[in-house]
Design a binder for these strands. Structure first.
Lengths: 152, 152
DNA sequence: TTCCAACTAACAATGGTTGTGAACAAGCAA
DNA sequence: TTGCTTGTTCACAACCATTGTTAGTTGGAA
């Protein structure tokens, strides 16, 4: 039910097919992404990788995540939380972001009803529509009721 | 018809009322914002300011823009173009971003039809909805037809 | 097994933004 | 008008996320 990135095995094949090499570092990252139910940053993927392979550099993590994003196997998001988020969910979806803790939740909503009057479009050719809902998650609402309200 | 930030005079009063001082640097920034029909970056505001007052530092521009944003007299946007954009349009609106040149256009669209199923909401309290339409402006379509297509 | 292109890791550099601190000036009061 | 106080300015450095560079290492096809 929850779509995710391809399996480590599939990604291995895709990398090889592209002439990219499959190193232990990359395999570790593939596994982490496949297990992730979140929208991790490069930093957090790195933190998880080094639990098993302490020498993997953050540079390598960035490189692999970028390769995956270039191949369309991962989406890269910027929801204004400072660092890029990598989204293993490739389905057409949108995001709900907690303004307290930065937590991101996938949401499915129909954007076909959103209209932009032709004159407002100013000749632009619109290709994508991204919706970001912002609010506060249950934890942030209950534990730190008002923190962060002044930074929007 | 095009809403904009308050007049330099009004902003002067607001600053004083808040115990903030009104310096020549700030007045210059107030004027530039009031004249702007765009979504300038701090850098571009600075570039304009120093045409008249060559000694104004970028630090001061950031400070003033942040003060205005804190006061709610300016909106701060992040549409993934690398740097923050400051939007003098305080009305409820959304954005259309050119993936070629980064140009931003304000658009008014009704988001009340966007539904997020309660179970997807995961207990979040949704306060705002932001829509970013991405595409290509007429200039980028005609002059550099495909540049930048690989970075989405 | 060989071999080369691709990779890794350490390091430095980048770009946007913010912290710091000494000199300075706005604006109030006398 | 003059002082005074507090906020401001500017130069500089620090910061963070991310990318460039380079020398040495390794995957994996032949």
């Amino acid at each position: 039910m929850v779509p995710t990135v391809r399996s480590p095995t599939e990604l291995t094949d895709l990398f090889r097919a592209r002439g990219l090499k499959v190193t232990p570092q990359r395999q570790a990252i593939f596994r982490i992404l496949h297990d992730a139910q979140t929208h991790p940053t490069a930093e957090s993927v790195h933190a998880t990788v080094i639990e098993d392979m302490p020498t993997v550099s953050l540079r390598t993590v960035y490189q692999t995540l970028n390769d995956l994003a270039d191949m369309g196997e991962l989406l890269q998001l910027d929801v204004g939380t400072g660092s890029a988020r990598f989204d293993p969910n490739l389905e057409n979806h949108h995001h709900l972001v907690c303004e307290g803790c930065g937590r991101i939740v996938d949401v499915y909503t129909d954007t076909s009803t959103l209209r932009v009057a032709p004159r407002q479009r100013q000749g632009f050719d619109i290709t994508t529509t991204e919706v970001v809902f912002r609010g506060r998650c249950p934890e942030c609402r209950s534990t730190i009721p008002q923190q962060g309200d002044n930074d929007a």
